[in-house]
Design a protein around this nucleic acid. Structure first.
Length: 275
DNA sequence: AAATTCTCCTGAAGGC
DNA sequence: TGCCTTCAGGAGAATT
């Protein structure tokens, strides 16, 4: 389940493709979240990759003719191969370069492969995105100001990519645990101190996860096939029924905004007035 | 405008 | 063994 740290890990792994030219693109299954624009992709043939970056959970592969935009959805894997192995089920696309190839595999097909001829910031998927969580644009004052008059649960709020981009279910749960904030707390009720705690916790957890190469629950792998090692550092995600590592209280699971949310009922208390 | 629900898809896991 | 149900999850689209 790639979130920001996983996509960042993939992005770092793909840097070796910089300056390589697209030689061939094979699309076996064009039906992802949006249809793969085969005709537009053919414009990439012969084009050199100028830069590979990440914005939110999108990978941006820039060429002189436009940008290839890739989202891994939930189960997408981009894997580099010196020699391509025999295709397996769900190996939907191959990008072939001199001496190396990049294969996109995605069993659940929630991902996307798109092409945008203009500045990628203007793409409809990217233009409404909130700030990157690891930049200074994402700071306690920004978070506090955005939170005013919002009634949505704080966990859903920080998972909204228009508020802050790239925070998914795993790291939202972890950040709230670190910040000692109940995931169901109405967003508008957090004060500046809590906003500061939360902002710092989000940054901390994402930095740590990037350092560990991401979190592998089931299917995440880096472009070299290695799993992420942050899994063993998860403090609450997937640990419902187990003791809190801070206070030994049994962690609970609740469904908040249609999403499973694990939290410590002792450390992450709702204000009495909200119960 | 803001909040909630629905939707895409497959594989794994659990129940009978 | 096998079939059915449930769940997981990113995020746009549709609905309330």
């Amino acid at each position: 389940m790639p979130e920001l740290p996983e996509v960042e890990t993939v992005c770092q792994g793909l840097q070796c493709l910089t300056n390589k030219r697209f030689k061939k693109i094979i699309v076996r299954q064009p039906s992802l979240r949006w249809p793969i624009p085969k005709t537009a992709l053919s414009k990439l043939i012969g084009q050199p990759i100028q830069q590979i970056t990440r914005r939110a959970k999108y990978l941006l592969i820039k060429t002189p003719h436009g940008t290839l935009i890739i989202h891994l959805g939930m189960s997408g894997v981009l894997r580099l191969h010196k020699t391509l192995p025999e295709t397996k089920k769900h190996d939907h696309v191959d990008f072939i370069f001199n001496g190396i190839a990049l294969r996109y595999t995605d069993p659940r097909r929630f991902g996307a492969i798109l092409f945008h001829a203009e500045n990628s910031d203007s793409h409809f998927l990217l233009k409404g995105l909130g700030p990157e969580p690891l930049t200074d644009d994402f700071n306690p004052v920004y978070l506090f100001n955005q939170s005013r008059n919002k009634k949505v649960a704080i966990k859903n709020f920080i998972m909204d990519s228009h508020v802050v981009s790239g925070v998914g279910n795993i790291y939202a749960a972890e950040a709230l645990f670190l910040a000692k904030i109940h995931p169901a707390q109405p967003t508008g009720t957090i004060d500046l101190t809590a906003a500061k705690q939360l902002c710092q916790s989000i940054k901390r957890i994402l930095r740590q996860a990037i350092k560990a190469g991401g979190t592998t629950l089931k299917d995440f792998q880096a472009s070299d096939g290695r799993p992420g090692y942050f899994t063993q550092n998860l403090l609450c995600y997937g640990r419902d029924g187990l003791p809190c590592q801070r206070c030994q209280t049994i962690l609970l699971k609740a469904i908040i905004g249609q999403r499973a949310s694990v939290f410590c009922p002792q450390c992450q208390r709702l204000a009495d007035s909200l119960i």
